[in-house]
Design a protein around this nucleic acid. Structure first.
Lengths: 122, 122
DNA sequence: CTTACGATTCTACAATACTAGAACCATGAG
DNA sequence: CTCATGGTTCTAGTATTGTAGAATCGTAAG
């Protein structure tokens, strides 16, 4: 994960309503939740929720699929793993353990490895 | 770390200038850097930098000490560890590994343990 | 004491983000 | 086709945040 994307993900989660939504989606697991259900549980207007859901999608923290007339949202855990990887290694120089689960799923999968930290810029 | 604090830390790092400052402080290590030096390296006005440094301090991501007429800032790595812990465990339900380095240093050290995840709220 | 310099605070402006009602668009049921 | 329902987009108002010049404060040297 590059710094630019990390900023986006951090800013997205650095907002109370959005973090609430995200946590709810995490709790819901892979099955996800329809938008209306999220709005009901968190007691926020659908319009407001929709605004935040687009944000979460943009940051690849959530994705949606349609089922009938419902739009089911689910959390993208991989992006959090990538963010954690960025925070520990690229940003802060901690050695990688090899247990990281990031990689392709939430990156643009351009050039492959790029082993250790030192400039994970722009 | 509680959700409230996590939001603050996430929002603080979710701003390009501030993340740049923080990364520079991390690179500088425990010795830290005087404010003027940071401003010079990042090419931002001192007033703007000061604004962001107060933010970083408020979120416990940095702290300052005076040496003569200089104010030396250094990064607080522990807070990042706590944030990572929150993201993985409290927020997202991953099992704790026992390798976490969070704990007292960057928390208000109120009541002690509170072992596993499940509601790390407000 | 006076001056120089590093840093913070004051202030104001610009930009961005959050909220939510209202209008609108899809989909499935009748 | 028409209607009801779930969701998004439009729109606008409010609040918050980021930027940076100018004024100010604090420390150390002359």
């Amino acid at each position: 994960m590059r710094t630019r994307q990390a900023v986006e993900v951090l800013a997205t989660l650095g907002q109370e309503t959005r973090l609430d939504v995200f946590r709810l989606l995490i709790q819901a697991g892979p099955a996800g939740l329809p938008a209306g259900e999220i709005a009901a549980r968190l007691k926020i207007p659908l319009a407001t929720l929709s605004f935040h859901l687009q944000h979460l999608k943009q940051a690849r923290l959530a994705h949606s699929k349609k089922r009938g007339k419902l739009v089911i949202y689910s959390a993208n855990f991989t992006t959090v793993d990538c963010l954690v990887g960025y925070l520990l290694h690229d940003c802060c120089g901690r050695p990688r353990t090899g247990l990281e689960v990031c990689g392709q799923a939430a990156s643009e999968s351009k050039a492959g490895a790029k082993s250790v930290s030192e400039r994970a810029d722009s």
